[in-house]
Nucleic acid binder design. Sequence first.
DNA 1: TTCGTGAGCAACCTTTTGGTTGCAGGTTAG
DNA 2: CTAACCTGCAACCAAAAGGTTGCTCACGAA
Lengths: 121, 121
Amino acid sequence: MSPRPEASGRSAARAALALRKSAPVFAALGDDTRLRLVALLCAGGAMSIAQLTLGTDITRQAVTKHLHVLADAGLVHDVRQGRERLWAFAPDRLAEARRSLDAIAAQWDSALLRLKSTVER
Amino acid sequence: MSPRPEASGRSAARAALALRKSAPVFAALGDDTRLRLVALLCAGGAMSIAQLTLGTDITRQAVTKHLHVLADAGLVHDVRQGRERLWAFAPDRLAEARRSLDAIAAQWDSALLRLKSTVER
DNA sequence: TTCGTGAGCAACCTTTTGGTTGCAGGTTAG
DNA sequence: CTAACCTGCAACCAAAAGGTTGCTCACGAA
């Protein structure tokens, strides 16, 4: 009876917790500048703050703040190297967020299926 | 030559656009209350504001504001019915956001692969 | 018709956010 | 050693976000 399609039980509660845990990640991604930073670090490997500021129209300090927001959300981590500080993408939290969205979508699909079967009955 | 694995060309630019488009969706999901609302509407079908306020410790007005934020992000839409107004989940934008996260993850994986092959060479 | 209920609108308040400027501290190249 | 460069910290500011209260309006049932 385990693969039963979500009877509002324990697994739903677990999903809700995972969802609440992903909220800060979504909040961190919900900004153009930060989303761009994530994409950059994701494609180009670790970069310094100065490099990340290049190509932006905001101050280095603003970029620093955004990086800290991303770090607090666990999307990014820093490595000190000499006089620079390199920032790198950290994939774990984003994977969690991805699973959360998948869970929501799956819940929607199953709700649609239930509705359809109810109508046909 | 179309399914070439991302040579930083036109398709990358298209992905960047899709990403920027998803930022408002992530911003809308980046709040505990709204995430909970989305999960509710996703599982339970359309609901009125009064119903959605039940089980929350905030005012009906606050819930209304959150619903408007979600509607602006395209995650939810409303249907007027008599004196009530029902809110329902709208899956399209969330699917787009999901694809955006997938694209980021894929970019990360391919970057790792490139790095690995470079090291081995 | 009248009363109860679900909703809209507007004003207001506090906290957070996104951004800036200015200055001080390490590090590395010449 | 010294100058150039990358970074950190703190103060400050304007705008946006999250929330509340108070009032009004529309609908439905009795």
